[in-house]
Amino acid sequence: MRRVLVFQTAFLGDLILVSPLLKSLKRTFPGAEVSLVVRKGFEEVFRGAPFVSQIIPFDKKGVWKFSRLLASGDFELVVSPHRSHRTSLILWLSGIKRRIGFDKAGFSFFYTDRVKYRMGKGIHEIDRNLDLLRPLERDYSVVYDREPELPLTPAEVGKALKKFSLEKSYVVLAPGSVWRTKAWLPEYYAEVANYFKGKGLTVVLVGSPSDSPYCKRVEELSEGVINLCGKTSLREFFSVVKGALLVISNDSSPVHVAISVGTPVLEIYGATVPEFGFFPYRNGLYVELEDLHCRPCGIHGGRKCPEGHFKCMVDLKPEVVIEKAEELLSSLS
């Protein structure tokens, strides 16, 4: 096997979680070039990774044109965790001889090998992605590497921490989300921020520019927090997470950044549930309001609570999150 392709153009967290798949392919085919298709804007995520030979950005326009680009790449195998109709069509049009994808993917009949998409208690997205390599076991000795990884050098981390004046121990809070019902109340995040400030720790807020309303509200209620929302590059964001004592985040990409750089992380669930497979894979815990009949209300959450009460977040009080955060820190000390 000389040239292998992985296709994942979903959200940032989904992309980060393909690192074990990429590493496993590289270990299985050490002489091969392993290329990765990402959503345009995410080209820097795996910069410097020894397990990725080429990053191919896709702006999700021009299906035929992009399929022709892939066809010119002389790939012998493509593995796709991405489950969209468009992805399946592009890969079929590319003419890559062997195409492995999930049975739940749109137009899954375009794949030469279809793998069962598993979901349930204890099954993580990393495990599902690695399931995609099982069809190869018939022909190759597949080597599985289950450790998530984001390549960061000490110099890169140090530069970012110096830029944002993060000399003292700090906790990172990530209060934003693309989906409103996945976002814990900013007022509650502010209470958590005040608790850690009371312990003498610096509190840093992170997020994309679209998360600014959440971060701004926390900043208004917790004087002295460092608000980096929308102010970091992707790589600086990773570095800030790497340098943290602890990360507290909604069900969103900061959780997966934290597990990939070895930072303890506490994940807060609202509309979604751990059974979807995006709980902390390692060095982390999660909190949720259990036995609420309306959870989950969607695979991604939604713009508003369909029941109109938002109990999954409103009734999950700050003291519960603080207690779980202290439990996590104690377990690692």
Rank of each mutant, 00 (worst) to 15 (best):
V78I: 15
S80I: 10
H82W: 04
R83S: 07
S84N: 06
S84A: 10
R86I: 08
T87S: 11
S88Y: 02
I90L: 08
L91A: 11
L91G: 03
S94C: 05
G101C: 02
F102T: 02
D103W: 00
F109L: 10
F110I: 02
F110M: 06
Y111G: 01
T112A: 02
K116D: 00
K116R: 01
Y117R: 09
R118Y: 05
M119G: 13
G120N: 13
K121T: 11
K121I: 08
K121V: 12
L130K: 03
D131K: 08
L132H: 00
L132I: 01
P135F: 06
D139S: 15
Y140E: 06
V143A: 10
Y144T: 10
E147L: 06
E149V: 09
E149G: 04
L150Y: 00
A155P: 05
A155S: 07
E156N: 05
E156I: 06
V157L: 10
K159F: 12
K159W: 10
A160G: 15
A160C: 14
L161R: 14
L166K: 08
Y170W: 10
V171I: 15
L173Y: 04
L173R: 05
L173V: 05
S177T: 12
V178L: 15
K182M: 11
P186H: 03
Y188D: 09
A190R: 14
